[in-house]
Design a protein around this nucleic acid. Sequence first.
RNA 1: GCCCGGGUGGCGGAAAGGCAGACGCAACGGACUUAAAAUCCGUUGGGGAUAUUAUCCCCGUGCGGGUUCGAAUCCCGCCCCGGGCACCA
Length: 858
Amino acid sequence: MKYEPREIEPKWQRYWEEEKLFKAVDFDQSRPKLYVLDMFPYPSAAGLHVGHPEGYTATDIYSRYMRMNGYNVLHPLGWDAFGLPAEQYAVQTGTLPRKTTEQNIETFRRQIKSLGFSYDWDREINTTSPDYYRWTQWIFIQLYKQGLAYLDEVPVNWCPALGTVLANEEVVNGVSERGGHPVERRPMKQWMLKITDYAERLLADLDELEWPEGIKEMQRNWIGKSTGAEIDFCVAENEETIRVFTTRPDTLFGCTYMVLAPEHPLVDKLTSPEKEKEVAAYKEDALAKSELSRSVSEQEKTGVFIGNYAVNPVNNERLPIWISDYVLMTYGTGAIMAVPAHDERDFEFAKTYDLPVQPILVPSKEAAEKEGITPEDVLEKRSCWTGQGTLVNSANDFGLDINGLDVENAKERTIEWLEQQDRGKAAVNYKLRDWLFSRQRYWGEPFPVVYMEDGSIKVLDEDELPLELPEMEDFSPSSNGESALARAEDWLDYTDPKTGKKGRRETHTMPQWAGSCWYYLRYLDPRNDARPWDEEKEKYWMPVDLYVGGAEHAVLHLLYARFWHKVLYDLGLVSTKEPFRKLVNQGMILGISYKDPQGRIVPNDKVVEDGNKLYHAETGQELEEMPAKMSKSLKNVVNPDDVIQQYGADSFRLYEMFMGPLEAVKPWRTEGVEGVRRFLNRVWKMVVGPDGGIAEEVKNSEMNEEELRVLHETIKKVTEDIESLNFNTAISQLMVFVNEFGGKAERNREAVETFILLLSPFAPHIAEELWSRMGYDNSLAYEPWPTYREECLKVANVEVVIQVNGKPRSRVTLPADATSEQMQQAAMEDERIQELTDSSDIKKVVTVPGKLVNVVAK
RNA sequence: GCCCGGGUGGCGGAAAGGCAGACGCAACGGACUUAAAAUCCGUUGGGGAUAUUAUCCCCGUGCGGGUUCGAAUCCCGCCCCGGGCACCA
């Protein structure tokens, strides 16, 4: 009887679902809890692609394994379904987003279920369901009440093509991350979340997380903490002071001019009458520039002198004040002290406008040499030096002398002096900015906010939630920066049920990230309609023990969710400081593509095969294989439905895990799926006979030493590899087992049963089927995980390598527990070794017990 | 430019400082078959020597050095590829 995944897979999927086999039990005190979470998918119209199930398979294997180890596993899934792509798709097809979203979810659910994952489907959630988003709104209200949500008129990233503003995180190189449309800066009234209040904690608490170092580093860079000083500069002939932030207070004596951001509030006040025209023109220019042109660093520096001077607090030198767009209003104080001798940007600007350069720091000869310059180059203003060195020309008559100090001590001393003089203080700055939280879109959570006629802002009461999204025929955004909701007449008008006062609802909606900021908490108590979650359940299940998802969420989702979690923690609503204890990023799966000799990637439908070679159908150029990101345009997308149809879900799962390490980027090869399918065929034939019963070779026979060793080696390796998520090597060990036992005339029954259990987390359908054919009535999902016996791993004799000067020259078989002396003796007696060493002196002999002897001879 | 990853057969990839290439794919040879597919068995890093089939030698983990009895693995200096950040004072 043949292995037929198409028959057995749906059967077991039905069984698991009907029996609710993977139900997570709240408050089970008899077993330790384990929360294993996948980043929930965004159900697109294209359906699942092969990248999604990679992480899901990994967490499924781990969950199934841990259940067999006696854990009470919470492993849920849901849908992150609000957001721009769904709305755009709905606009294109002319259907309601709610409808298309429902269809997409249905497709995703069907596809995911066909892979046999052990989710607790009773906990399925959907961010677009009013039962869910009422609590997203509720959390927003808590943020508002904490003063962490505020309205601000800010220059934002307005994207005309998408008809919405975007967060800084959603703008990449000046164009929208989705779609690549141009983005311009434009002042608008927006909801902001004060994530900056949490910058320090978001940074510090990274240390306690078991996350990939790279992701933590990316978050650290994003938060961008710098320590330095704030220094006040008096303006000559004026009452004003200009405050700057600098990380290099030690270079204050080298400051020769100042620069303000063009938007700086003091610019107009400080501009001299004769410079007004020029300044106004420059400001207009700078503001019109998009983020793109403004952030290209190679661009030449421009600026305008505003006709006024500030005073350097350490030496009373007059410093011309300039404006330039290389100074950003959004970082620090929007003003800088320029130290051209020791800052590349200031140096470049000073060269352009012929401003004075004052060196005050000399590098050591060696340090300078490494950069290909000399200390004289710095002192004679030919080179800019930003590294370590010794301070010079840095003393005044008012008690500050930092000459001869190194950078660190000079910083400290300068700050001390500034504090004494009341001219500055130590300060910390973060690159992180507040989170722009509104979108001019229809398909998102409505803000529970009303603008009252008297000008006040009212957030809705808890009993007014959910504020449901009105159903609209036309939900395209308006061109003036308001969302479609501005046209929802009936919905807009609000009358306070208690006071009777009237108002108009907020027409913006929340960004896609809102729903995913707290979904892991809703899984704990998904049907609670009195509270977002039960606090006791939260205490039982949290934190998430393992979180698996793509690295593209390194800063966005993962930073936002941590921020909300910390707010909830401060409100006493959650019991842990951090939501996700251990994080793993699965690597992308690439498609097979081809490149021409110029390195250009050619779409797969333009590739023709002739003999063993590949050619471009049109140009005739010879092509070379090259993996590339799967995309419709390259025609290299693999559809999981096709793979499952042809090879089965177990083969699909096994192949995705066998390709290579979970975190690595790997190219998809359908031949590889055939390989693991062949493996499962051999597994089937190892257990099942031609009549469908147990194969007659499976019996209560004695195992020989080698079989015993392979069995226990397999238990050990598979166990350890699942623990460390090295699924590829676990699978190769399962293959080793089948290579050993598969063709044998006698296959020990116990060994075969153990093997089925070891295989079950990876290929659960075939494992269940074999288990039941072995005569068991119950699912194997809660069978105890096999354990290995140390003594069975040992073998009586081992082959010991004998090296001469580190090169393997001979091998001898010795008892595994041979002593160093015995090994040495065997090496010396070896004919080949004697031959090789007889004309030289033996200097020493190194032995590694059970492995190797190295004879060092000269 | 800066910060992370990573470079091992034809390909995906294995290797607590101890026999490099486990496991799989592909390829080749053979068995079965009228034939093919499927399946099974065998070979497969490169070069060379001896040679009735086995034995041996040299080279080989991006490049160049170093540490060590011994390096894919550790250290120093480069090159290339992938990802992230990018006028953040």
